[in-house]
């Protein structure tokens, strides 16, 4: 158990250290998100009230696409064609690799979210001082990364993998996006926990089942 946790921690630290030196991935994701915010705000020429109503939808669509960018990249850094060989050679459980990579992806996604939320607050006139919203962001991103890392590891071993990942991931992640949008929207519009409860339940269920499946199946994905 100790070695399991320390392997996860080592992989997470390694990915963050590598990203800190190049800052390529997070920069690309940030620029992408900012661009999309501008394009949405500009092309959807709407009044303030509607703008606030659709804010959560815009927020999550953008994060989902940015997250897909990140997922494609973090596996590409592991050997040719994302083979993960360097990690697979080590005497650590395969599932520790899965959790390490999932947490690294989650970290990058959260960094992007933290940096871009103020922009959303300005453009879509929403208040960020909502602990509920932060909880949804954390939960939703966790769900997204847990399924995304699993599918990215599969897509990495197929032809045209960069194209394949969004096609595999987005329909599978739809319950996460729908529930996260509902819950965020509830908090942003000040409707409170009661209105968000059902959506939060779905996120919790998804956020427990997906990592469990990843834990069980990652062996099968990386074995040859």
């Amino acid at each position: 158990m100790a070695s399991f946790v320390s392997a996860i921690w080592a992989i997470l630290r390694k990915d963050i250290a590598a990203e800190w030196r190049s800052r390529q991935l997070v920069t690309a994701m940030l620029v992408f998100v900012v661009l999309v915010i501008f394009i949405f705000a500009f092309t959807l020429d709407i009044d303030t009230l509607t703008r606030r109503q659709i804010a959560a939808g815009v927020l999550w669509t953008t994060f989902a696409f940015a997250g897909t960018l990140g997922l494609n990249r973090t596996l590409a850094s592991e050997g040719e064609r994302g083979s993960l060989d360097g990690l697979l050679l080590a005497p650590v459980e395969r599932s520790a690799i899965y959790f390490g990579k999932t947490l690294a992806n989650l970290f990058f996604m959260l960094v992007v979210e933290i940096f871009t939320l103020p922009l959303y607050a300005v453009f879509y006139d929403m208040s960020l001082a909502q602990p509920g919203l932060w909880l949804v962001l954390l939960l939703g991103s966790w769900c997204f990364c847990s399924v995304g890392t699993l599918l990215a590891a599969m897509a990495a071993q197929a032809r045209s993998r960069e194209l394949l990942l969004p096609v595999l991931l987005l329909p599978m992640a739809l319950p996460v996006l729908v529930a996260a949008v509902r819950a965020s929207s509830a908090f942003v519009n000040g409707l409170g926990l009661e209105y968000a409860q059902a959506s939060l339940n779905i996120l919790v269920v998804y956020g427990l089942i997906m990592p469990a499946l990843g834990f069980m199946f990652f062996d099968f994905i990386v074995e040859e």
Binding site: A7, K14, A17, D85, G86, P91
Partner: peptide, 30 residues
């Protein structure tokens, strides 16, 4: 795997990290 050293076609190192950081990472895994 704990007893095996493997040197394949690819160096299996991380471009962004220094030699030190690369070895430190693998030392932690092993």
């Amino acid at each position: 795997r704990a007893q095996v050293g493997y040197l394949g076609h690819q160096p299996l190192l991380y471009d962004e990290l220094t030699a030190d950081q690369n070895l430190e990472f693998f030392a932690r895994l092993y």
